[in-house]
Design a protein around this nucleic acid. Structure first.
Lengths: 193, 193
DNA sequence: TGACATGACTAATAACCTTAGTTAGAGTAA
DNA sequence: TTACTCTAACTAAGGTTATTAGTCATGTCA
């Protein structure tokens, strides 16, 4: 029996991401990932620092994927239309990659895990840029971005966990919710001209 | 050694809630609760249907507490001011009762666990009433309530899990975020007079 | 060829949750 | 009072997970 299965770190992350997106983050156990890769659980420790290390890699990988998703969503669109596009891309990401999406929380402290922190900050920066390009001063933008993040995260978390009760008209609710925030952002933009 | 410790169901829920609020929902294990009560883990099965059963009771208890919190927050206030008060009460609840707050998700399906579903719906109904009293038609209120819930849940979840990065100006961000939603709600109210 | 690093492995331990079967104590009815 | 019954504790045992420690085959490179 050959001792070298030749598993790469990328294999581990891909297997974990695949399980997490299919069955939920909780299902991406070391045992499950090892099983998927055809190795024994302790062997994973040669690639990853335990479960928390694997989760961390998942979050980094997810952040990069989210960044690409946002970049594609924005393209050369600007302003409110770009925000709408981002919002829908985020929702689609949450649907396609539930496990990765859930791996973003809890977030690391900036000085504890710089690499992960920065990876997770990138998509936020991208959105920040859209607001700043709209002419919103930084002091206001920080609150508006937090509002947008909160709304999107809250909506997608509630939606995924069936927190809305009757699943009727959720698409319309999402659009209306996003428009509410965008209206506030546009008002702030108009205000600071 | 006396075999009757005389533990009541309420004792179990209180112990679990206390641990969950202090150390997080994950820390409220059967082992920890049994330890707190001075009994062995399997004995808990005489009171509760396993871990999931205990979590469920936690969610029911938390919903009742949240309902009381909202009722107090509203008092005899109406309209936008009532919504502000609810928002801040919700945030305080999330801080004082992290474990209970986290026990609300994932939510049950209406026909799977009616008792829990209805308990969790009560606080939402309360907020719905405020909107309807403002003269907002039901067809619009549903979207606005979802927007408000999403924003509050998202904000409090991100805040608790340090998702906002730098913890500067979070209070101001919260107020600004809530005002954004309230502005939309007031606009809808003015629109349907 | 021989040393070494890599990346598998087995063995073992520690938290958990859960089920099955047992038993002491307390209330209730004849 | 005595016998019955139920409650609510217990012990024993098994399963899933993560984790650590120690071992060993395989391929690479000096």
């Amino acid at each position: 029996m050959g001792r070298k299965a030749g598993i790469t770190l990328q294999d581990v992350v891909e297997a974990a991401a695949s399980i997490a997106d299919r069955d939920g983050l909780e299902a991406a156990t070391l045992t499950a990932v090892a099983g998927e890769l055809g190795i024994k659980t302790p062997s994973l420790y040669n690639h990853v620092q335990g479960l928390s290390g694997m989760r961390r890699l998942l979050a980094i990988h997810g952040s990069q994927l989210l960044l690409e998703t946002f970049e594609e969503a924005i393209g050369d669109i600007e302003g409110a239309e770009a925000l709408r596009s981002i919002a829908h891309a985020d929702r689609q990401f949450a649907r396609d990659h539930r496990g990765l999406y859930d791996s973003f929380l809890p977030a690391p402290k900036p000085d504890e895990d710089t690499e992960l922190y920065e990876a997770m900050a990138e998509p936020v920066f991208l959105v920040a840029h859209v607001l700043l390009d709209m002419g919103i001063p930084q002091s206001e933008a920080i609150h508006l971005i937090r509002a947008l993040r909160a709304l999107l995260h809250g909506f997608l978390d509630l939606e995924a966990k069936e927190g809305f009760g009757m699943p009727i008209g959720i698409d319309a609710s999402f659009d209306a919710s996003v428009e509410l925030i965008i209206a506030g952002i546009e008002a702030a933009a108009a205000n600071s001209k």
